[in-house]
């Protein structure tokens, strides 16, 4: 009971510090804006640890954070192998192919108004569908290894990126297009000097959505069959063995990979579209 009481105390303390910080004079400063969520996160972890220990929650229901950290540290080689298999090969491979294909398709579609009007609604429609469901089919076609996972990722990221790129390439004003006309610019001059730069914020929007989809696709596809390595494989087998500390360790990897992946794309976006109002604030 001591630990449970301590958990309540820690929670109260963490919240009180954040209350003071949020109401304090430097609430808008960078440091505080970063510190508050971190304090909140640490508080949650501490409360989790204390409650699990205090209430003797069995490992098969919820392992304590310290246990997960220990498992993480002890299984680094396995986690790394899974990371390489699922993230670097499956997710990243599929992401590059899928996004590349989508952007190329969008460039071709952009030349024909008819195609654009036909493909945009279809693309929007498909983007809302549960495409992970294609995983069993693609596993059947491309085998158990990472190629089938990459294929699932390709299908998942293709339509969101396509729709955003096509929309972005239309995002010029009549005046900007007239200006190109007064220079008697060719189609490709207009494309590279005007429409592509103007489309970049939209393309990156699609690319950012696609990062999460790529990880989801690569992990879930492994539930339908995989070699004996990979994050989805590890999660489903560890769940079967009730080794929840391992499951959580994989989830930590997935969370880190997801944030870094997204962060990297967002960083490139900031560097490339620094001029856009949304990036200037």
């Amino acid at each position: 009971m001591m630990l449970v009481a301590l958990a309540a105390l820690v929670w109260g303390l963490g919240w009180w510090i954040n209350l003071r910080l949020a109401a304090g004079p430097s609430a808008q400063s960078r440091g505080v804006r970063l510190a508050v969520p971190v304090i909140f996160g640490v508080t949650v972890l501490a409360v989790w640890e204390l409650l699990v220990r205090g209430l003797d929650v069995p490992l098969v229901i919820l392992p304590a954070p310290s246990l997960i950290a220990a498992r993480f540290a002890a299984s680094l080689p396995v986690l790394w192998a899974d990371f390489v298999q699922t993230i670097l090969k499956g997710a990243l491979g599929g992401y590059v192919i899928g996004c590349g294909a989508a952007i190329l398709t969008a460039v071709l579609v952009d030349r024909s108004d008819f195609l654009r009007r036909g493909l945009l609604p279809v693309g929007n429609f498909v983007a809302a569908l549960p495409i992970v469901g294609t995983a069993p089919i693609l596993v059947m076609w491309f085998g158990f290894d990472w190629q089938s996972k990459a294929a699932v990722v390709v299908v998942m990221v293709f339509f969101p990126v396509l729709v955003n790129t096509v929309a972005g390439l239309r995002e010029t004003t009549a005046m900007q297009r007239d200006l190109m006309e007064t220079y008697a610019a060719s189609y490709w001059q207009g494309f590279f000097k005007l429409r592509l730069p103007a489309a970049l914020p939209f393309i990156f929007n699609g690319l950012k959505i696609a990062t999460t989809l790529a990880l989801v696709g690569a992990i879930v596809a492994e539930f339908f069959g995989s070699p004996t390595v990979g994050m989805g494989f590890r999660i489903s087998t560890s769940v079967g063995q009730l080794a929840l500390d391992m499951v959580w360790a994989e989830i930590v990897v997935a969370a880190l990979a997801g944030s870094v992946f997204y962060g990297a794309v967002a960083w490139v976006e900031k560097a490339v579209t620094f001029w856009h109002p949304s990036q200037r604030a």
Partner: peptide, 16 residues
């Protein structure tokens, strides 16, 4: 033949 320069109502400079 690029015979003229055109100035629009708004500056319309490319922000990038």
């Amino acid at each position: 033949a690029r015979a003229y320069g055109y100035v629009f109502q708004a500056a319309g400079l490319y922000p990038w």
